[in-house]
């Protein structure tokens, strides 16, 4: 199992689906372990009632059906499927509405879904998902990207309602982006990182507000460390392979 995760960590993120399916076929006995520890690019379906797109994940799946957060229906229909309690469903509906606005503001498009379910110790778990196609043929506003995907998965465990409630958030971001033009060729970065954040917050502020703030903060941190640290390290590596002082000298006279 450790070796399998080692391979997931080394193989190109662009091939994560192939890597996982290869590992699943080599290690059929570990399939549930693998599926719970490895995140893959998210898939999408359209709600039969209103055509709105929703995201598929382990948390809205039962058998081979997925529940839409918009109509609360399973696709394809499924008998005796589990649903959140009506109180939690109400919170789920609001979370979906508000998270849609959040996504418009940060993503200028993209698809979002929020799922909630009761857990065993009187609290609940919520999963906030975003999928954005930022390519120029997708929802890229400026047309810079030949190919560009962003998938964010935020799973947040909320403890039993107390004056100060415990929130445990695990966030994963997977992305890939490619630019392509004649002068600079194809330039492609892909990757995934995962981080955690735990907080105790006054329940009086509202679950949605508490969860939302944590998600916004951690998502911002993940974006920042991808941008500054992870991309930065690959750039450093390129500059070590071919130190660019020569480039600077060559370019000075012309500029």
């Amino acid at each position: 199992m450790e070796a399998a995760l080692g391979l997931m960590r080394r193989m190109p993120p662009r091939h994560s689906e192939t890597t996982l399916s290869a590992l699943l076929s080599l290690l059929p006995g570990h399939s549930s372990d693998l599926l719970s520890q490895v995140d893959l690019p998210l898939q999408v379906l359209s709600d039969v009632d209103n055509g709105k797109k929703f995201i598929l994940c382990e948390y809205n799946r039962d058998a081979d059906s997925y529940r839409s957060p918009w109509s609360n229906k399973y696709h394809p229909p499924l008998e005796d499927a589990p649903y959140p309690s009506s109180k939690l469903r109400q919170l789920e509906i609001e979370a979906n509405d508000i998270f849609t606005v959040y996504c418009e503001q940060y993503y200028e498009g993209g698809i979002s879904s929020v799922y909630m379910w009761e857990d065993d110790n009187e609290g609940f778990v919520a999963c906030f998902l975003v999928k954005k196609d930022g390519s120029k043929t997708g929802q890229g506003r400026r047309g810079y990207l030949e190919e560009g995907t962003w998938d964010a998965i935020h799973v947040i465990e909320v403890g039993p309602d107390e004056e100060v409630t415990r929130y445990c958030l695990t966030s994963t971001v997977m992305l890939s982006l490619t630019t392509d033009d004649v002068s600079s060729g194809t330039f492609s970065l892909s990757g995934s990182i995962r981080r955690q954040m735990n907080m105790n917050l006054p329940v009086a502020d509202g679950h949605l507000s508490n969860m939302g703030k944590m998600i916004e903060e951690l998502e911002g941190k993940l974006r920042n460390s991808l941008d500054q640290v992870y991309f930065g390290k690959t750039r450093e590596m390129v500059c070590t392979l071919r130190p660019s002082n020569e480039v600077v000298q060559m370019r000075l006279p012309t500029s």
Partner: peptide
């Protein structure tokens, strides 16, 4: 994490 650059020209 796992972040990779792949560039060609």
């Amino acid at each position: 994490g796992n972040v990779q650059l792949d560039a060609k020209r």
